[in-house]
Simulated assay, not measured.
Amino acid sequence: MTATTTGGHKTVNTVLGPVPASELGVVAVHEALLSVVPGAEHAYDVSMDRAEIFETLARKLADFREAGGTTIVDSTGMFHGRDVRLYEALSRATGVHIVASTGMGPEEMLGGYFLTPQTNPPTPWPAEKFAGLFTQEVTEGMVVPRVERRGAAGIVTTTATREGMTPTDESLFRGAARTALATGVPVSIRYGADALHDLDVVLDEQLPADRVVVGGLDRRDAVAAGTPLEVARRGAYVALDHVGLDDDADHVDDRQRAALVLELVAAGHGNRVMLSGNAVGVAKGHPDYDLPFGYVAATFMPFLRAQGLSDDDARRLLVDNPRDLLARR
């Protein structure tokens, strides 16, 4: 279903098929189009009106294009509202490239099937089973429940338990890394208690560090420990992906994010930094987070430039780094 090159150029899997990586333009690398808490779609007080959802997302994606955005990565994974047919229609209607994701996590958000022991005595799902599941979504297409496979996932995303990686989380991370090795797509991880430990788990699978983006590194605990700089030194991408979140106890604010970006660039790691807003286009079963998808490009980047970021570095953060990560190898 997919190919790593088109006419000799590296490609990226989008919901409408592979596109040349050079055509991605400005990328929002960690967002959520439709985010549904598992089970909320069955709640009596939750509307899942597809026409209404489409209209809302189409308007927000049009605004994203108006802000200069070209590609959006939906990082919800398999079971949090991902709707491949909806995303195909949105991409056709708006002209925005949509890269959808496979993967899942953390353990507490998995369905019972994935927590059912597969061995006697009981052990968590093994990494190879998760790898097989995720790999099929890249090579054969993403599952549309009870119907078919459509489109190919362009990235594997997984998250560890906030209090610390569990054995099941470790299987997820190792399975994600094996899928990346087998298919050439990258891995996006959200760390639990220790970003460097969680990064080491995927690197232990012999996945090159530049195929990994570590999200959530604008958390206060990570910034205080100097973790973003250490992740960059190891060769992985640093995602400061809560841009626009200025009043949260767990994350630094945009002024501190800007200072961190400039620090990383000054240290020679501008080629390892990515920015995103973790915005939610439509939320079901949890509170809205109605940040514009174009906030980084339209609002935060001008602020960064005013703080001294060069135009070349701005392009690197918004265009070059996401392109290099997403291009299949």
Rank of each mutant, 00 (worst) to 15 (best):
A266E: 14
P124K: 03
S75R: 04
L203W: 09
A222M: 04
T4V: 03
D83K: 04
G105Y: 07
L115G: 06
S47V: 11
G270T: 03
L318P: 04
A3N: 09
E41L: 05
R59C: 02
L199N: 02
L34H: 02
L291V: 09
G105D: 06
R305L: 05
G154H: 09
A195H: 05
I155D: 03
V280S: 00
R328T: 05
M301F: 00
L203I: 06
F54C: 11
V99N: 10
A93M: 06
T4I: 02
R220T: 13
P208F: 02
A58M: 05
R162V: 14
G192K: 08
P287R: 08
T71C: 09
L245D: 09
L133Q: 10
Y191V: 00
D311T: 14
M165P: 00
A127P: 00
D324I: 01
R255L: 12
T6N: 10
T70E: 14
A222P: 02
A176P: 04
V27N: 03
G111L: 12
T157Q: 08
L318Q: 07
F173M: 12
D45N: 15
G154V: 12
G17N: 10
D247G: 12
R315W: 10
D200Y: 00
D254R: 01
R85I: 08
G216R: 09
V144H: 08
A93V: 02
E66N: 09
E128Y: 13
E88M: 15
L24C: 11
N13K: 10
W125M: 14
F300P: 00
Q206L: 04
F134W: 05
